[in-house]
Design a protein around this nucleic acid. Structure first.
Lengths: 201, 201
DNA sequence: GCAATTGTTGTCACTCAGTGTCAACCACGC
DNA sequence: GCGTGGTTGACACTGAGTGACAACAATTGC
């Protein structure tokens, strides 16, 4: 394990994403073809698809592995903490990916690319829905542990989760629109405080 | 105005969507090509694209004109009604499109097609985001009329709107998962009651 | 009525994302 | 050294979506 193959594969993947991001920021997402990216890193078009199944994954692929972090983060929260508070807490695991130190060079521009391209934004929202599905099962788990399981067909856990993730996106949009003024964490605090459901579960 | 051209255009559009929906429900969205739809209605592939710019619009196109209804609906609400209540009220304009009388024949199956296909679901979420943008401007309007405009960069209106639309999707998912038991309106009531933000604006 | 205009359709050719296949190559275990 | 399996390039293919052009039908002005 972890021989040359693993390492070169990792390195090639990095090289591709970096070249792709540069092109996306420079001339736009739609205007950049996979061929452009392939020639930029000096390989065949076919091979790019062997590293990233779709063009969207070149931008949003790293989001997938964040799901596990969210799960671990939620399980680490105190059992009887209000749900809304637990959700706010696990979102802190996403904050560094949004509000990074180099934000003006890569992070924020790439987020603008995502939010301005319908296809990418769509893919982003769907990935968040996947995260929500996982969180919903966690809420069911916790409720069952308290001997207060949700009735079958009860939309409550989904609704609370969707509301929280809605706040996440809203905060991100507002923060980007403000020219990344202040920290993203405070924007998220404001957004989630503005909703703050009464049913804390 | 309203000559033969307008009417036939309307009729042809209907014919295409009906043929498309039937194929989508029957053999699935991905498995149905535009060619299949074109031959089903006896026209060229190219012409289908002259009626519907994308394949997704064959399913979700009608959602676009609902935005105006939402705007009118919101403006018709009492000025000092709590925001959450106003949002719940305008969602009633969407209810008939989800929970129709023929639900077991076309409506519910098509919703399952949308929710089970990542591309369609993505497009659905983006269209909802568009609706949200409009609603957010309405919230700003109302706040300004009360001489309590939101500070610039405040994520509050976005957050509350996103939370409400999150409840909408959550309710729809829960309702479909339950085999469309009960009415969708009650599922939506439960979902929105479960969140019910304290800040009513 | 008829001509000029405008909308609709079919056909062809094209771009680009994504997939399947095959042969050549290179790291790895033995 | 040698077979195994992962990596790569090359080629061919499907399917969504676009642009251009010619043929035809509907509309408008006269």
């Amino acid at each position: 394990m972890s021989g040359i193959r693993e390492r070169t594969r990792q390195a090639v993947a990095r090289e591709i994403t970096e070249a792709a991001n540069a092109l996306f920021i420079d001339r736009g997402y739609e205007a950049t073809t996979i061929d452009d990216i392939a020639t930029a890193v000096g390989m065949s078009r076919r091979n790019v698809f062997r590293y990233f199944p779709t063009k969207e994954d070149l931008v949003l692929g790293k989001l997938d592995y964040l799901v596990e972090e969210l799960v671990d983060g939620f399980r680490a929260r105190p059992e009887n903490e209000p749900v809304w508070q637990s959700l706010r807490a696990i979102f802190d695991l996403l904050v560094p990916h949004i509000d990074t130190l180099d934000k003006d060079f890569v992070a924020a521009p790439m987020q603008r690319v995502v939010f301005s391209n319908p296809n990418l934004f769509a893919s982003y929202l769907v990935k968040q829905q996947r995260m929500q599905e996982v969180v919903v099962t966690l809420l069911h788990e916790r409720a069952a542990d308290h001997d207060r399981p949700y009735p079958t067909g009860d939309p409550t856990p989904r609704a609370v989760t969707a509301a929280a993730f809605g706040c996440l996106v809203a905060a991100q949009q507002a923060w980007l629109e403000s020219g990344t003024a202040g920290t993203f964490a405070t924007a998220l605090d404001e957004a989630m405080a503005a909703v703050a459901p009464q049913a804390h579960g």
